[in-house]
């Protein structure tokens, strides 16, 4: 049986100012998983990742990466781990290539060993042309990709990404998603925190939601979505309506002159909505969900745990 990529047990962290960031969280991530750690600002996500990567000292509990305790066997735990932090944390005056090669050196790779891998990663992340440029001259998105290349240079088995696509434009975000998916498909376990719940829904298989230092949900993304009772759709119409049509079993509201909002609960079918609208002579041009499904659940779970 494979050792889990990550095991956290009863982990607590109280900062010097008395703030209790983690109140005894436990979770396990299997090898090969694509795992999301979600939560509002200040929930304890970055503290958890900080403890795993050795940048934050835990107060109590334990954390293991690929079976190696992050404190007692920090040497091995760190070899297995690649970390992409939320804030830029590289020397702004160093060249891109030097940052990546230097990081390889910290993991015991000589320049000769690291150079081909660095080229491969920088090419994959569209940074090869910028390799001789000082890092401070890169755009925000390039800096994020540089941190990903740096984290992967030693071929970690587990990659931690703390808000990897924050402030990155949509096109770039999608190319980074594709990169991460390929990486995961090649066997790297990925643990990410994100504010973009669409990101978690698109990429991750399993998810933990953390709030006020406690895990309020730890399940598969599919399992989480199955908890969703009601989904609201917006239907754009070909013609404007004076009043919302009455649909049997559905709550329908006008959303502007030529759009409808329809609530569809678990067990109901959107096909039925279309059938009834067609019978009422209402022509639908296009359809979209009102908000991200995971977002709705996230808000309800976080609000629920705060009560």
């Amino acid at each position: 049986m494979k050792v889990p990529a990550l095991v956290v047990q009863n982990l607590t962290k109280t900062y010097d100012n008395g703030f209790q960031a983690l109140k005894g969280i436990s979770l396990s991530v299997e090898q090969g998983d694509f795992f999301a750690l979600l939560g509002p600002n200040g929930a304890g996500k970055s503290t958890t990742l900080g403890i795993l990567s050795g940048l934050v000292q835990k107060t109590s509990g334990s954390a293991e990466v690929m079976g190696a305790d992050v404190n007692a066997d920090a040497f091995n735990a760190r070899r297995y781990l690649g970390v992409v932090p939320q804030e830029f944390n590289f020397n702004q005056f160093e060249k891109v290539i030097d940052i990546v090669i230097t990081q390889a050196g910290y993991f015991g790779m000589t320049q000769a060993e690291a150079a081909p891998r660095a080229e491969e990663l920088l090419r994959a992340l569209d940074l090869w042309e910028k390799r001789d440029q000082q890092s401070r001259l890169l755009s925000g998105g390039m800096k994020r990709r540089l941190m990903i290349a740096r984290a992967l240079i030693h071929g970690p088995k587990v990659l931690i990404l703390d808000e990897p696509t924050a402030g990155v434009d949509i096109e770039l975000r999608r190319s980074m998603w594709a990169f991460m998916k390929d990486l995961n498909a090649a066997g790297t376990t990925i643990i990410l925190t994100t504010h973009y719940l669409e990101e978690a829904e698109q990429l991750c298989r399993n998810v933990a939601i953390i709030n006020h230092g406690e895990i309020v949900q730890n399940t598969s993304v599919r399992g989480l979505l199955s908890q969703l009772n009601t989904e609201t759709f917006i239907l754009d119409l070909n013609e404007s309506l004076d009043a919302a049509p009455l649909l049997n079993g559905y709550a329908v509201r006008l959303a502007g002159l030529d759009a409808l909002e329809v609530d569809v609960t678990k067990g109901q079918s959107i096909n039925d909505v279309f059938t009834q609208l067609t019978a009422s002579n209402v022509q639908v041009r296009s359809m979209r969900t009102k908000s991200n499904r995971l977002e709705e659940l996230f808000v309800s779970l976080v609000r629920g745990s705060a009560k």
């Binding site: 781990l81 944390n89 910290y106």
Partner: peptide
Amino acid sequence: RSVEEMMVAP
């Protein structure tokens, strides 16, 4: 914060 590059390494 580039010291973190060393802190996360073995």
